[in-house]
Amino acid sequence: MLTVNAYAAPSATEPLGPTTIERRDVGPKDVLIEIRYAGVCHSDIHTVRGDWGQITYPQVVGHEIAGIVTEVGSEVTRHAVGDRVGVGCMVNSCRECENCLAGMENYCLAGNTQTYASVDRDGTITQGGYSTHVVVVEDFVLKIPDAIPLDKAAPLLCAGITTYSPLAHWNAGPGKKVAVVGLGGLGHLAVKIAHAMGAEVTVLSRTLSKKDDGLRFGADDYRATSDPDTFADLANTFDLIVNTVSAGIDLDAYLSLLRLDGTLVNVGAPAEPLPLSVFTLFGNRRSFAGSGIGSIAETQKMLDFCAEHSIAPETELIAAEAINEAYERVLKSDVRYRFVIDIATLA
Rank of each mutant, 00 (worst) to 15 (best):
T315N: 11
V201T: 04
A12M: 12
V134P: 00
I65D: 01
A110T: 15
L150I: 07
L234P: 02
E71K: 14
D227H: 05
A117H: 02
L142E: 08
P273S: 05
G182P: 04
A247T: 13
E14T: 04
A102M: 11
R78F: 09
V119T: 15
V119E: 15
V265Y: 02
G86Q: 01
A344Y: 05
F305S: 03
D220W: 01
F339C: 09
S291P: 01
G187E: 10
I55M: 05
V134N: 02
G123K: 03
N99H: 13
E272D: 15
I144S: 05
N324P: 01
C158G: 09
I144V: 15
C306L: 04
G53A: 08
A253M: 07
E64S: 02
L240Q: 10
E321Y: 11
D44I: 03
G198T: 07
P228W: 07
E22Y: 06
D122Y: 04
T124M: 06
V61G: 00
V203W: 07
L303W: 02
Q54V: 12
G160Y: 02
D212P: 01
L189A: 06
K210T: 13
V141I: 07
A6H: 00
T299L: 04
A319V: 05
L240I: 10
E105T: 07
L303N: 02
W170N: 09
Q114H: 14
E325G: 11
V134C: 12
E138K: 08
V181M: 10
R36N: 13
T299H: 03
T115L: 08
P166G: 04
L16E: 09
A168E: 13
G248M: 06
V76C: 04
E34V: 03
I45V: 14
R329Q: 11
C89S: 12
